[in-house]
Amino acid sequence: MEKTLTYDFCEMTIHTNYVIVVMKEGVDITPEHNHVLVDVTNQYFKNTPFVYITHRINSYSVNPKIYFETAKIKNLRGFAVVSKDYKAKVNAEIEKMFFSKPFEIFGDLDEAKQWAEALVKQ
């Protein structure tokens, strides 16, 4: 399964065991954006474990409070950040402190996909 959903703040590609999200340039991600994630996961991953992969191609900001709500998604097994940018990786290390489930940072999208597949199968 692969389906792409486009929103004013991001593009989501739904796969069998994970969703890959690319945020748009300059967006300020707030807890309100989390409602879209919850709706998407309820529609495409209902009662099915999955991993959220954010592919940080563009520059944007994230309110760390969003992770408290994101972690409440019962079937969410983990969260991956993919970026080659040093600053984005440092920011992700800070964000990691706000998330209570597995949270990994990768420089390569394929590595994140492999991690997601393994995490879902556990």
Rank of each mutant, 00 (worst) to 15 (best):
F103E: 05
I94G: 06
L5P: 01
T16R: 15
G78Y: 07
I53Q: 03
N75I: 01
V36E: 13
I66R: 11
A92F: 08
V81I: 15
Y52A: 07
N47R: 03
F68S: 15
K89C: 15
T30E: 14
D110M: 12
Y18C: 08
V19S: 08
N42K: 14
Y44D: 04
D8M: 09
D108M: 04
I29S: 07
Y44E: 03
K101T: 02
E25Y: 06
Y52Q: 11
T13V: 03
T13F: 02
D8W: 01
V22R: 03
Y60V: 09
Q43N: 09
V19I: 01
N17G: 07
K65A: 15
G78D: 04
F9G: 03
N34H: 09
H55M: 00
V62H: 05
V81M: 14
T41P: 02
F50L: 00
H15E: 08
I105N: 02
Y52L: 11
H33R: 04
T54L: 06
T48D: 10
Q43C: 10
S83Y: 08
I57L: 15
S83T: 12
F68M: 13
Y7G: 12
W115S: 06
N91H: 12
P102Y: 01
F106M: 06
E93C: 10
K121L: 09
S59N: 14
L119Y: 03
G78F: 03
K24Y: 09
Y67A: 07
D85M: 03
T41D: 08
N47W: 12
F99H: 01
K72R: 14
N34W: 12
K101N: 05
E104G: 07
A92C: 11
V22D: 00
T6K: 13
V51R: 03
K65H: 15
R77A: 13
I29A: 15
A116E: 07
V27W: 00
T54H: 04
H15F: 14
N75Y: 12
E111P: 04
M12A: 10
H55T: 02
L37R: 12
D108E: 13
K87S: 15
